[in-house]
């Protein structure tokens, strides 16, 4: 029988102090890398203010597109990017992700924190309660993305006819599908899945009702609530995949817009 002392780890009073033996640091580190990578890419793309539309495609980072005169330094992306950014920033799942990985509140369960004081979401972070308002805007954005998808199936009849601005081709158009159309379709499906599982959405559609049998349309709302639960159970998965795909969608459209991928190559039929 031997005795050992390691009060630092038992008490977990210093950052990273823990008795855990597993690789608890892998998950927060991965999240920092992925989230930081996405933020850097999106900010760069917003500042780039070029190559955001090509052929019938409009990048989701610049959609909806407003034809207004802006100062040279201001990209049209800044007019709209705060909506998806705000929705994801206040999302209950992403809050968990960045509280853990960026703020170390806590970095992992049962691991010491670097902070002595803590106020949670009761003071400075009260604004997180505005998530439902970002939800309303996010639903409107999905409608806009569906419009973009419809527009992504309209191609000029004459191959020589060029697009003069996002969604506006010179001359008549016809139905067609390109790789970009499919990329945008997947983007719309993933974003819809992500927004459909939103906790605030679940609350609004039926979660706020305790006795559905006593409420007008209560049974229907209860069924919708159950449907939303299906998406909500995998909200994190929808969140990550839709985040990655929206970045890929923008990247693909940038490739088309810059001419790296030609419209002839892109168009399937």
């Amino acid at each position: 029988m031997a005795t050992s002392h390691c009060c630092k780890d038992i008490i977990e009073r210093s950052f990273g102090a823990t008795l855990r033996r597993d690789n608890w640091w892998v998950e927060p580190l991965t999240m920092v890398v992925v989230l930081l990578g996405f933020v850097i890419y999106s900010v760069w793309r917003a500042f780039e203010h070029a190559n955001y539309w090509g052929g019938p495609y409009l990048s989701p980072f610049y959609s909806p597109h407003f034809s207004v005169d802006l100062p040279r330094w201001c990209s049209p992306a800044f007019l709209i990017i705060w909506v998806p950014a705000g929705f994801r920033f206040t999302c209950y799942y992403f809050r968990k992700a960045y509280y853990r990985s960026f703020a170390s509140q806590p970095i992992a369960c049962g691991v010491g924190k670097p902070w002595k004081s803590y106020s949670g979401e009761s003071k400075l972070l009260l604004f997180q309660n505005l998530h439902r308002f970002f939800l309303y805007l996010a639903i409107a954005f999905i409608v806009v993305h569906i419009y973009d998808l419809v527009k992504a199936t309209r191609w000029p009849v004459s191959a020589a006819a060029a697009y003069t601005s996002p969604h506006h081709a010179a001359g008549p158009t016809e139905f067609g599908i390109g790789i970009g159309t499919i990329v945008i379709l997947i983007d719309v499906i993933l974003l819809t899945g992500y927004v459909s599982g939103c906790h605030a959405f679940r609350h609004l559609v039926g979660g706020c009702i305790d006795a559905p049998s006593r409420v007008f349309l209560g049974r229907l709302r209860h069924r919708i609530w159950r449907g939303v639960n299906v998406f909500n159970e995998h909200h994190n998965m929808w969140g990550w995949i839709s985040l990655a795909w929206v970045g890929f969608t923008d990247f693909y459209i940038r490739m088309v817009a810059s001419g790296t991928i030609s419209l002839e190559f892109d168009r399937l039929f």
Binding site: Y92, R95, K96, Y99, R100, Q105, P106, C109, G110, Y118, S119, G120, E121, S122, L125, L126, H199, N232, E233, H235
Partner: peptide, 24 residues
Amino acid sequence: GGIGLCNITKCCTEVCPEKIKITD
């Protein structure tokens, strides 16, 4: 209850032996 102090990092859900989805 101090519900504002909870920052929904889901450690409670991870350890629940009854698999109750406490946070969600």
